[in-house]
């Protein structure tokens, strides 16, 4: 359904709407959003039977951002067989063309990486021990290819990534659901950087 015309908003004189605090929200080409949605483990994965692993969180690294901003603020109980745990942890990363050149260059380098290892965003599933004595331990990795987004020109919405074992990356231990809203920004970054190259 289309939005109603102003003519339909009878009596709107009685209502006072305050101006937006963000009068012009940031353009899509000047930000990206990463959401860690949910995760599940394969029922037969070792992590399921490992009693030292009781709760987990997920983190990723992004250029200059401190980990405290890119890790889920809570650890959740380890999912049971067939269960999914839900973080809905959404982070908007400012990619202002003037103030955040460093981040834009960082993303461009990822898009251009020769080594596929460097062209992807790495998510780490971490076991958070219940007692202070034990240390956090990586239980799995998941990778998101950035060039996919640039190539397809569309955002990634709730895509399931394989979680692989840190010991043997050929072994899948679970699934991590993520969203990446970055198509407009990556397009703009790629255009801006390649224009620089050839001008």
């Amino acid at each position: 359904a289309s939005e109603a015309s102003e003519a339909q908003t009878l009596d709107s004189d009685d209502i006072i709407v305050t101006p937006q605090s963000q009068s012009c929200p940031k353009a899509d080409s000047e930000k990206m959003c990463i959401e860690i949605v949910s995760l599940a483990f394969c029922p037969e994965a070792e992590v399921m039977s490992d009693e030292n692993i009781q709760q987990v969180y997920v983190e990723y690294k992004f250029y200059d951002l401190p980990l405290s901003e890119t890790e889920t603020p809570v650890s959740l109980r380890k999912p049971r067989a067939g269960e999914e745990i839900h973080f809905h942890f959404n982070k908007v990363i400012d990619l202002d063309p003037v103030e955040q050149q460093g981040r834009r260059q960082f993303l461009f380098a990822m898009l251009h990486a020769q080594d596929p290892e460097e062209g992807r965003l790495k998510f780490t599933v971490v076991s958070d021990p219940l007692d202070e004595k034990n240390e956090c331990q990586d239980v799995g990795y998941a990778y998101l290819e950035l060039w996919q987004v640039l190539q397809s020109g569309s955002d990634i919405l709730e895509q399931e990534l394989k979680i692989v074992s840190p010991g043997d990356q050929a072994i899948q231990i679970g699934r991590l659901k993520v969203s990446l809203r970055a198509a407009a920004a990556l397009h703009s970054i790629y255009k801006e950087m390649t224009e620089d190259l050839f001008s």
Binding site: A1, E3, Q8, L10, S12, I15
Partner: peptide, 22 residues
């Protein structure tokens, strides 16, 4: 949202501003 006419305004267009039901 108004796709079922739930706003009672005699149409099914979404309305983005509080509107009095005259």
């Amino acid at each position: 949202s108004n796709n079922w006419g739930q706003l009672g305004l005699g149409s099914k267009s979404a309305i983005s501003k509080p509107t009095c039901i005259k």
